[in-house]
Design a protein around this nucleic acid. Sequence first.
RNA 1: UCCCCUGUAGCUCAGCUGGCAGAGCAAGUGGCUGUUAACCACUGGGUCCGGUGUUCGAACCACCGCGGGGGAGCCA
Length: 463
Amino acid sequence: MRPSVKELLGVDAAGQEVIVKGWVRTKRQTKSAAFVEVNDGSCMANIQCVFDAETAGKPEIASTLEKVSTGASVSVEGTLVPSPAAGQKAELRATGLQVIGEAPPDAYPLQKKAHSLEFLREIAHLRPRTNTFGAVARVRNRMAFAVHQFFQERGFSYIHTPIITASDAEGAGAMFQVTTLDLEKVASSGAVDYGYDFFGKPAFLTVSGQLNVETYCQALGRVYTFGPTFRAENSNTTRHLSEFWMIEPEVAFAGIEDNIDLARDFIHYLVQTALRDCAEDLAFFDARIQPGLIESLKSVASGSFSRMTYTEAVAELEKHKGVFEFKPYWGCDLQSEHEKFLTEKVVGGPLVVTDYPKDIKAFYMKQNDDEKTVAAMDVLVPRFGEIIGGSEREWRLPLLQKRIADMGLNLDSYWWYLDLRRFGSTPHAGFGLGFERLLLYVTGMTNIRDVIPFPRAPKLADF
RNA sequence: UCCCCUGUAGCUCAGCUGGCAGAGCAAGUGGCUGUUAACCACUGGGUCCGGUGUUCGAACCACCGCGGGGGAGCCA
């Protein structure tokens, strides 16, 4: 394959004859030379293609140069040479030029200037051509691969849990219903008979792969899911999407301490990978999006995570309750202001908070002997707050049954989940990580709609 | 769903107490001996989000609607 710009800029420039294909970012012309910067998305950097006066003066080149504008796709032939000017090590001394697709400047929305992220959201089909969104896409790709690398290197199996689920028993939030019923007819008939629906009963898009992945955990031991997840909540924030990607590992014969170790190693691995393999893109985010980003990432890339129980955390927060909008008390859900205070001000680094009150956590979490708390663990990081939430699971049948009943859930609809506790049950644990939230943390971007190519949110399903 | 802010040129915004629609950048044209957020000069560019009302007069005030942003809640 023809070398990418990234590859060309990575070799010693020694007069090799090459062809560069990509999209023009900017063109500068003087009497003595024309400079066309070409980007092909392989890296942040452009390659500068230089047409000297003689070349630029040839009629066919001159007329083609007139059609070169920001956004146009081009093919440039020339030789790769060390650059005589500052700003780039190598450049292309151009001998030939073709415009593949023009981008008329009076109509092309992207200019060679900074645009607001809000404006770029309105042209989601063109925004990957900008520095910021190109960088986000490259980091997203690398992080997705790193997720698989991390688990595969540790003997985990990737389990494809279903997108469509026939039970609404997962309890993790509002669900999108999936149906082939004709809603117009349903509306006029005044009644719904799910016997006529595609699955013969109500069906929904999944809100979590956890309950399903636990079944394979109880067979393969170390498993994980990484797939699209859907929430129909009317959430309109910089941290929520209606469609997002979630990572959920689950390990058999494991307790909460194993879970915490795994989560810590996972964060270490992802952040180290980003710092090593996305250095150019992170440098851009550090300079333009989130000053101090790289320093902040380096501080969590290795080393231990502090530990604190929920009870200790609340005691710590109560010492400073004057600074909070929401007053902390034992039994309250930790607000994002509380989480940030704990990780940034109290411990000054990553923090794992464990043993939350059972009443604010999900039914499947393992109950502690104190009968008040569950073996839950949240990982908090500076600048962001909670990035991972997980727990040891309740693996004892009677206790799980009682918990489901106490929370007013329907035992029958959990029959297969309960079977896992009836037959060869094991202590097991796992956690969940929202992939886009990881990307917010790693890139320093602040709106979750800017770290997924095509965001879905209430009243937002364009493109 | 609630609270706050906001909508003016392609983009980012200013527009005072209601009195002729503005700037920077972008674009076009010309200039410039290697530029790199190029530079210099000139030029073109408007449904002031939509509707209704108040007024001699509305970008500006009031009401309704639509769009965008931020925060909260829910959560990953």
